[in-house]
Amino acid sequence: MRILAKPIKINPIIKKDLQVTARSMRLSWALFAYEVILTLAFLLALAIIQSDNNSYYSSRNIYSYLIYLFPVQAAVQAFIVALIVPIITAPSISGEKERQTFDIMLTTCMSPFSIVFGKVVSAVIRILFFVAAGMPIMALAFVVGGLEWSSLLYFILTIILLSVFSGSIGICCSAFCRKSIVAVVLSFIIYFVIYILTFVPTILRFLWSKGEHAGESMLFLLINPAVFFEEFFMQIMTGESAFGVAGSNFDKSEVGVITYSLSQGKTWMFLSAACIFILAILFMLAAAWKVNPMHSSSKNNFTGKSNRNKRKNKDVQ
């Protein structure tokens, strides 16, 4: 009973960040913009399906194509989330440093990891505001039937994973950069590496095998959230593995045991989710290590007053 009576302690950073965000007009404008984009995407997708229906399909089966509004909406939401999260998290620590509130934070009993974790979670919760706001539009795809409600739950879990991953990249850059703008730019560079450059080994291997298969080079794509997202929707919509279709409809001897095993069932999806989550934790640990004054390199922390003043003057110039 005593355990039950004990109040649950919320990370104070989450509470403060949400409090400050809720009072800002920026949140309202951002939600408005988000809703507008989602509505436009919905209308556009609907228009395309209708025009296709007029030209190719009979009016009888248009409903079977309306189901694709769900992945379209989900992809648009995921894309916006992937764009928004680093913009929220990348300035979170560097912003505290710029505002000179971070030192006080570090002198409290909060551990560096709790600070970093709190920042990421508050970003994820803010993203959930957006996801919740997008739900009514998303729910339109359910009107025609054919979709399970559990799909929506999986979608939310996917968005949370994506937010944690993007948030951890943002927070890591924020910890390593003094200026927020540099942190945001660096986040998008890391995005480019993870989302785009992880395709390079696969493409090269594919070309090497004269367009037959990409083999184990596809393992690099385990950390690519875009591939994970595609796999997730392939599983939901068709029950098949995108990885299996794209890379491993081959014999074990052709693509290797690992690649072959991964293409079976939902293995790729779960393994990819685990890899993305582990990578997110590693980014958060790196950020916590960096902001911990007892660990990080002393050169970067030379904050003697005369030196700080010099830096300030330099900034002004």
């Binding site: 302690k9 104070p12 800002s24 505002r99 509130t101 030192d103 409290t108 009993c109």
Partner: peptide
């Protein structure tokens, strides 16, 4: 030291106390 926009004195104390 800087301060947070949109945070009241009472909330400021509450924030650091929780920390």
């Amino acid at each position: 030291f800087g301060v947070y926009d949109n945070l009241k004195v009472r909330e400021y104390m509450d924030f650091y106390g929780s920390m």
